[in-house]
Amino acid sequence: METAPFLVEIDNPEPDTTRLTLSGDFDYTTSGELAALTPTLMSRGLKVLEVDLNGVTFIDSSGLATLIHLFHAAEEVPAEMRFVGMTPYIAHLFEVTALDQVFNLPTSAA
């Protein structure tokens, strides 16, 4: 099976805001990359962590676990993690796992 490469883009639209743009297959084989990045993302002074999942084609339980881990890491800073991009597929997945009750989701897709 061919897979869509998993990509992580990081930029800072505001000084205290970091935006993560994820794309491709976010699964057991690729989630380690974001997990490894997590400590460096949680720099001091971080207030808002935006996560854009618009380009994510597939996400499995390892991908979800990595997002939860990211969410907890942001809580500790403390910073607010919110999702700014979402697909119906991922919104459904968040609903099945009831993570929609935990995460800050964009109102349009929630």
């Binding site: 939860i68 609903e95 099945v96 796992t97 009831a98 993570l99 009750q101």
Partner: peptide, 16 residues
């Protein structure tokens, strides 16, 4: 029927 992933949310509260 729906519910939160287990062992994931540190606060310990799950909705079912």
């Amino acid at each position: 029927a729906r519910g939160t992933l287990l062992g994931a949310i540190r606060s310990g509260s799950i909705t079912l």
